[in-house]
């Protein structure tokens, strides 16, 4: 995916800014789900393949995106687009002079100049919420074996019912990670 061109939206009108209300945080994957589904007009199946998640997972992400946007509209909240469990292939940067995005394939060396116009006014598109971008964090669903209670990390794209418990040889069930929903 390419990162969105903006960081978020602000409401306007006389009522805005009177109450200090929290902004709505639209995750990158939710932005991407909305873009694929409603901007590129793909169906959920095609879009789920593009995002390398299962079709039900895509629909969950998409529903969450719509819910957040509706919340922002109705309650007059700001939307900020950041974070999420996204896989950027490498570090991406943005040049403030010529407006191009570029990546840095040499991870050992850091980038200081724009490869196109040579300007040094570049901004890293790096993960501001690096915790959330880390796939190994605690904020993911689990597969659980109902027989022995064994839990393992859920692999996106593979339904839990296809995961077999190594001890009991029966298929596993999805377990939502509650730490994640409350945060």
């Amino acid at each position: 995916m390419n990162p969105p061109i903006i960081k978020g939206f602000k409401p306007y009108g006389p009522e805005t800014g009177k109450h200090k209300i929290e902004l709505v945080n639209l995750l990158y994957e939710e932005y991407e789900a909305l873009r694929l589904s409603d901007y590129d007009m793909l169906n959920h199946h095609q879009a789920s393949i593009k995002m390398a998640v299962s079709r039900p997972t895509f629909t969950r992400i998409y529903a969450s995106a719509l819910q957040k946007i509706a919340k922002a509209f109705v309650e007059g909240r700001q939307i900020s687009i950041e974070g999420g469990k996204v896989y950027f292939d490498s570090d991406w940067y943005y040049c403030n002079d010529c407006g191009c995005h570029f990546n840095n394939p040499e991870k050992e060396k850091s980038t200081k100049d724009c490869p196109l116009c040579g300007s040094n006014k570049i901004t890293a598109f790096a993960s501001e919420n690096s915790m959330e971008n880390n796939p190994d964090n605690l904020c993911g669903d689990l597969c659980i074996c109902l027989n022995c209670g064994l839990e393992q990390k859920h692999q996106s794209g593979i339904p839990c019912s296809q995961e077999i418990c190594p001890k009991c040889n029966i298929s596993m069930k999805r377990k939502r990670n509650l730490n994640c929903i409350n945060s």
Binding site: G99, C100, H101, F102, N103, P105
Partner: peptide, 20 residues
């Protein structure tokens, strides 16, 4: 595209995206 990015990453070719 989706298929291209990982290949270019492994070849260490830099991608510059200019939407103009």
């Amino acid at each position: 595209g989706m298929k291209v990015k990982p290949i270019l990453d492994s070849l260490k070719i830099q991608m510059v995206v200019l939407k103009d």
